[in-house]
Amino acid sequence: MSSFDLSEILGNPEYVSMLLLGIEMTFVVAIGSWVLAMTLALLLLGLRYAPGPVGNAFVTAYVSYHRNVPTLVQLMLWYFGIFTLMPDGLTFWLNDHNAEAIFAVIGLGLCQAAYFSEDLRSGMRAVSPGQLEAARALGHSYVSAMRFVMVPQGTRNALPALINHSVSLFKNSSLAVAIGVAELTYAVKEIENLSFRTFESYLLVTILYLVFSLMIMTVGAYVARRADPVRSGRA
């Protein structure tokens, strides 16, 4: 093995463009599944609070499945399993539209939704019931008490968990490589194969992941600080 030399990779336009494509796909998968997850999470939360036992039971089952089956297995079940059961028309269409990436977004998004919805629910539960009573005593309607008193506090309580889980969602986008999505981990393995520069390519991609994760944490910390009336100086 020759000595450490990052320019072997960064000086090669082919490798650089593979890296950039990998980054792009990682973000497509991460952002796509984050949006899907948050949307579903809000729906699930709504179902939780809906009257009647059915909604609650459904959400419990949903959360239980997605939290107790490894994410990788969920992805495999989607891509290798459910995909093959779909009608031909749909299969063709999906194959024309990067089916791997679509299933990565679906699989990761559905899985993450379970975590997000639980984060939001624990956040809501951590608001003391006295708050609702106090708001009702002041003449707020149930909806208005929720809107102005409970939800703002609940989301603030949930923020640290949501941020943590957003970081792990981003990291989990790497699992998409298992179903053949050409994201960053896929790129590093390709570059390693072509360049024989294992250490350099791993180091580069590791730093990239680290930087992006730290960026999410920093932004999250900023949002959490802004949401905290005491620390943001709005008290």
């Binding site: 970081v167 990291k171 989990n172 986008s173 790497s174 699992l175 490589v177 981990t185 590093v188 393995k189 791993y202 991609v205 590791t206 992941y209 680290l210 994760s213 730290l214 944490m217």
Partner: peptide
């Protein structure tokens, strides 16, 4: 916390 486990395994 910042690097995917998959990367660590590699």
């Amino acid at each position: 916390r910042g690097v995917p486990l998959l990367m660590l395994i590699l």
